[in-house]
Design a protein around this nucleic acid. Sequence first.
DNA 1: TCATTCCTCTGACCCGCCCA
DNA 2: TGGGCGGGTCAGAGGAATGA
Length: 317
Amino acid sequence: MITCINLGKSLSLLLDAATEIQMDPEPTEQDKAFLTRQLVQVTLPHSSPGNVPIWKRRNGNLTLSIRPGWNHEKDQPIGYPFGSIPRLLLFWITTEALRTQSRKLELGESLAGFMRDIGLDPSTGGGKRGDGRRLQNQMERLFRATISLEMMDTKDKNVIGKRWIDMQVAPEGELWWNFKNPGQATLFGSWIELGEKFYEAIIASPVPLDKRALRALKRSPLALDLYAWATYKTYSLNHHKKVEQFIPWHAFMAQLGAEYNDHKNFKKKAKAAFKKVRSVYPGLEMEEVDGGFIIRQGKTAIRQKQSRRKLSTKISG
DNA sequence: TCATTCCTCTGACCCGCCCA
DNA sequence: TGGGCGGGTCAGAGGAATGA
């Protein structure tokens, strides 16, 4: 009985979002979100990488690596950001940085308001399993981490040079929230200041997304990644007037599912996640073929005509 | 209201079947 | 025989219900 109710809730969230998006494909200004192109092409871990000194993911010539921040009190690493919450935080950070055109982002006077803003539920209490504690933990992991992007320049398969950028996500900030009591307003507003390099990177090439879809997919980090990737890829094909592109499963796994040890498992999970993505992104044109899938030109999650004003000079490749 | 408990979801791993 | 595929189980993380 409980199983039926829970399945129903989870499914109905997706179905509600799918119906809403089909009825009204263009989101309101409030329902628009953004994520930087580099973090669409190479993504954060889906699950905890464990106690390793550095975490890396590679897509062609582009490598993303993350080094966790240091907890001086406990004299140990804070840990890596992983799962859905840091992804929701990155959507929020990119969207706010673009909206305000400022490195300093106001998080608000109440944790509950911020949680609702990024798609979490403040009514889950302040216990260790509540959204508040999870958010606190993942905020610390994400904000204190150092993200590095490295681009290899090659000619005839030989490396002729490389460029890199090391970015601290938020080297400064103040959090005055009561994580045990998310609804409690505080005397001072909480804020973070994004690292200069990180700020420049995220506003340079934003990919527009639909918050309604993000809310419906928030339980699956893989589905969130695939949704952002599919939106970016469709935009890219349209922009370059390329009709379609074949994506081999092995290359796709290296890009978005590198931590999967079993490529069969990745394919199985990716196919299931794509089903969810297509329900909230009806404009996605893709077809499975031998060894991979073909993605074609189609409608982007946000109408290109509107978003292009901001993006035409910013998105490339 | 908050913290805990229970259940679901997701990723890892294994196994067996099928086909070339 | 090896690769592709689907199904099952297990552990950890996430979501929802419940009792103090």
